[in-house]
């Protein structure tokens, strides 16, 4: 049965424990709950007919622990890879799942986890289940439904086809270049901050904001992405990005009141802002800074002359629309079984 569709799972044990529990009101997402979600996802996959699952063998054993009390029919295969306890583990796992021909990858984490997965997964579609803090990319999805949706994609029941609602959509991303050289990427937001240290990584303090580049515009976003939603109510989410310069400036009378982190609603002065077309680049102001990608400070810019540019790339990761996939399953009739007349349930 080596041709049976393969589903990947990347559940990152580290997400959901950063400093925003202290400075904002982020919930602590413990690994036990991640195990519960993975367990439900495995049961959903099994119900949808998936028989093979490969996964990132994290240090805590999230998938193994989930499987211990889940349906044993699934063949679970840990990826044979070294674990270094860094975000690069997730990128490596995504690359390996892609190379193994995985049909879909379920991720558990926040924007940060999906960012590093997207760097390795290529065109393998993602089912991102939110367990992080400032989450715009993954959504709060019930684990069983995530598993069933992933299973419907893997088994080919739900797919993009002519005349059918799209079940997999291409998400945009942001490409960051330094002095013209590709440096990194983000899925939702790139922030230039006047903090010069990566430190505790998470970005939350609005007084440190200088410039923001967004891949998407949505008022229903938490974190800096919410600023774009506040400024551009008429822009369609996914059609364009935005560039926003933050801070007080003579003559600038505009502020936005937005949820900059969970439970942290702040008023933020805006100097200037514009929409960015897909494919468009913007060069950020020079000077020592820290570049945060999807909410985490990742790059320290110590060279004051370094030119940091950000491009809105429409060709980001492919993402499963869980509702659409389940609707496609329903349309295909896979959730309905018609009993044949000779079978009498009361006899069974």
């Amino acid at each position: 049965m080596s041709d049976a569709p393969l589903v990947g799972i990347i559940a990152k044990p580290a997400s959901g424990k950063d400093i925003r529990r202290l400075v904002a009101h982020g919930s602590t997402f413990d690994n036990n709950e991640k195990i519960n979600i993975v367990r439900r996802a495995l049961l959903g996959l099994d119900a949808a007919g998936v028989t093979r699952v490969a996964y990132l063998p994290d240090s805590y054993g999230i998938v193994e622990r989930a499987a211990a009390t889940a349906n044993p029919r699934l063949k679970l295969m840990p990826l044979a890879m070294p674990i270094v306890g860094h975000a690069s583990d997730s990128t490596e796992a995504a690359q390996r799942l892609r190379d193994l021909g995985a049909a879909v990858i379920i991720t558990l984490g926040g924007d940060g986890t999906n960012r590093v997965v997207a760097k390795g997964c290529g065109d393998v579609p993602l089912v991102p289940v939110s367990t992080g803090t400032n989450n715009v990319f993954p959504r709060m999805i019930e684990g069983t439904l995530a598993g069933i949706a992933a299973g419907l994609i893997a088994t080919g029941v739900a797919h993009n086809g002519p005349g059918k609602p799209r079940v997999i959509r291409r998400a945009p991303r942001l490409e960051v270049s330094i002095n013209g050289e590709p440096a990194d990427s983000a899925l939702i937001d790139v922030v230039s901050s006047n903090q010069t240290w990566i430190g505790a990584r998470a970005f939350w303090e609005p007084s440190h904001l200088r410039e923001i580049v967004l891949s998407r515009i949505s008022a229903a976003a938490i974190g800096v992405a919410s600023i774009g939603g506040a400024l551009f109510p008429d822009a369609c989410d996914g059609c364009s990005g935005a560039w926003i310069a933050v801070g007080e400036r003579e003559g600038s009378a505009r502020t936005v009141i937005v949820p900059i982190a969970p439970g942290l609603v702040r008023e933020i002065p805006v100097q200037d802002a514009k929409l960015l077309a897909q494919g468009e680049s913007v060069t950020l102001g020079r000077g020592p800074s820290t570049i945060a990608l999807d909410g985490e400070r990742e790059i320290e810019i110590t060279d004051a002359s370094a030119a940091v540019s950000v491009r809105v790339d429409p060709h980001g990761p492919r993402v499963v629309d869980v509702e659409a996939a389940l609707a496609a399953g329903a349309a295909a009739g896979v959730f309905v079984r018609t009993r044949s007349p000779e079978v009498n349930p009361t006899v069974e």
């Binding site: 424990k17 950063d18 400093i19 529990r21 690994n31 505790a200």
Partner: peptide, 28 residues
């Protein structure tokens, strides 16, 4: 897996920080 998780049992904030990075420790 993270001792900081135990904070939630007592309903206080629990944070994991890179203890090899003095900036991260200082900030948290």
């Amino acid at each position: 897996s993270d001792i900081a998780n135990r904070a939630s049992a007592y309903e206080i904030p629990g944070v994991v920080v890179d203890g090899l990075d003095v900036f991260a420790v200082y900030e948290a």
